[in-house]
């Protein structure tokens, strides 16, 4: 138990992404309103983006832009430990595009659902479907 607290503090980025992810998942499962579910989905995806960005960080690292002549002068080799890993960031550019596209499709579908049933509350919609099926 005594070891757990420092461990939690040292790896706080993982805790933050886990909490965010579970918040999003909770909203997707428990919320009744379709738009709230979509927002939950977006929080869920953002948590993963944060996770990727945080694993790229290095203590004491700087932006991965090589100045003229190289970091520290001269034409020698570059020390990778001096720079933050840029690859996860670039991957997340793609993931952000994907999440925006998912959001767009989800909102378009929500509009279609709203036009059809006149509501975005899921239990109202289910009630309408059940009464239609009962006829």
């Amino acid at each position: 138990m005594t070891d757990l607290l420092p461990l939690m503090a040292a790896k706080y980025n993982y805790w933050i992404y886990t909490i965010l992810m579970m918040t999003g998942l909770y909203a997707m499962i428990a919320k009744n309103n379709l738009v709230k579910k979509i927002i939950g989905m977006n929080i869920f995806q953002t948590a993963i983006i944060l996770f990727y960005v945080s694993i790229a960080y290095k203590t004491g690292g700087t932006l991965p832009i090589i100045m003229e002549g190289g970091h520290g002068g001269g034409h020698g080799a570059i020390n990778a430990a001096d720079y933050i890993n840029p690859l996860p960031h670039t991957l997340m550019l793609t993931a952000i595009v994907v999440s925006v596209a998912t959001m767009g499709v989800a909102l378009a579908l929500a509009i279609k659902v709203y036009r059809q049933y006149g509501t975005l509350e899921e239990d109202d919609i289910n009630h309408q479907i059940r009464t239609q099926a009962g006829q």
Binding site: L25, M28, K37, Q45, T102, L109, A110, V113, Y117
Partner: peptide, 17 residues
């Protein structure tokens, strides 16, 4: 169909994430 597709989208996004 739109409602089923939206539910599929929620589950599909969880899976892909």
């Amino acid at each position: 169909a739109p409602l089923s597709s939206l539910n599929y989208l929620f589950m599909g996004t969880i899976g892909a994430s």
